[in-house]
């Protein structure tokens, strides 16, 4: 082999070595994951619900002044596999639904580093799971979803899993909304899970997947037979001991109010 052939050989060997090493990197170093945004929208009769706007309720005016809930263990499902999106988060429509545009946008719960692939399901807990519900806000920093004193009820030793509050026209004179309703539910026994299946959620490289989940607010306030609550009779559900089956019913209503 003369010097010229040796040089060509070495050059080809170097190129081969380099290209082999380039091929190896994707196997070991490229992160095969991407992001997802789960957008929650609160609706009234299928339209974005604006806080404090007057809507009709059985022929009377009513408003929703507060709507918020804890979401936990949000996961994407692929067969028997689950990909964690968010352990715990707090969805407060007070941060978005004060305007029509904000109501249309809703509240986003984001997740990162989701393994790439096509997922066929999504599920989450509605409320705070018992292990975290054994804690209280002093165990968390103030910017943590579980760090808010306002969302914890001392007498229950529990977070308030969800709140719906507002006013209504009790005397039907249309001038003012002199009456109010408040539905606060907590305690482990009222924790619920929501599962959506038969989906096709694509987590692809360089793309943030979008999922929109709607909540029909009217469905939060229904008796077991489907009739709307009579605010006069079911106006203030808060006491853990004095409200009978309503906390559990409202927790079930929340599960049924979600749709994709």
């Amino acid at each position: 082999m003369n010097y010229r052939y040796l040089s060509i050989f070495l050059l080809l060997a170097s190129i081969t070595l380099l290209s082999t090493s380039c091929e190896k990197e994707p196997d070991g170093d490229v992160v095969e994951s991407s992001n997802i945004e789960v957008r929650f929208r609160a609706l009234i009769d299928g339209q974005p619900m604006v806080l404090n706007e007057r809507y009709d309720y059985n022929g009377k005016d009513f408003t929703i002044s507060s709507l918020k809930f804890y979401i936990s263990d949000l996961v994407l499902v692929k067969g028997a596999l689950e990909a964690n999106v968010k352990e715990i988060d707090f969805v407060d429509f007070g941060t978005s639904n004060t305007t029509a545009q904000g109501a249309a946008d809703g509240v986003v719960v984001g997740g990162a580093s989701i393994p790439l692939g096509t997922y066929d399901g999504l599920k989450f807990g509605l409320g705070v799971p018992s292990d975290l519900n054994n804690e209280d806000p002093t165990d968390f920093s103030s910017n943590h979803p579980l760090g808010a004193d306002s969302e914890y009820w001392l007498a229950w030793d529990s977070y308030i899993f969800h709140k719906v509050e507002g006013r209504y026209d009790g005397d039907n004179n249309a001038n003012d909304l002199e009456s109010s309703y408040v539905y606060h539910v907590g305690l482990d026994e009222n924790f619920r899970e929501k599962t959506f299946s038969n989906l096709e959620i694509e987590i692809a490289e360089d793309n943030t997947a979008q999922v929109v989940i709607d909540i029909e607010v009217r469905d939060l306030m229904r008796e077991a037979n489907g009739n709307a609550f009579d605010f006069e009779a079911v106006g203030n559900i808060h006491s853990a001991t004095g409200d009978g089956s309503y906390p559990g019913l409202i927790a079930d209503n929340w599960v049924n109010a979600f749709s994709l």
Binding site: P137, T138, A148, D149, S150, Y152, W153, L154, A155
Partner: peptide, 14 residues
Amino acid sequence: CGHCHTGPLLTTND
């Protein structure tokens, strides 16, 4: 009362 005045500071700061 406890809806607005709770936690170690007895306020929700809202």
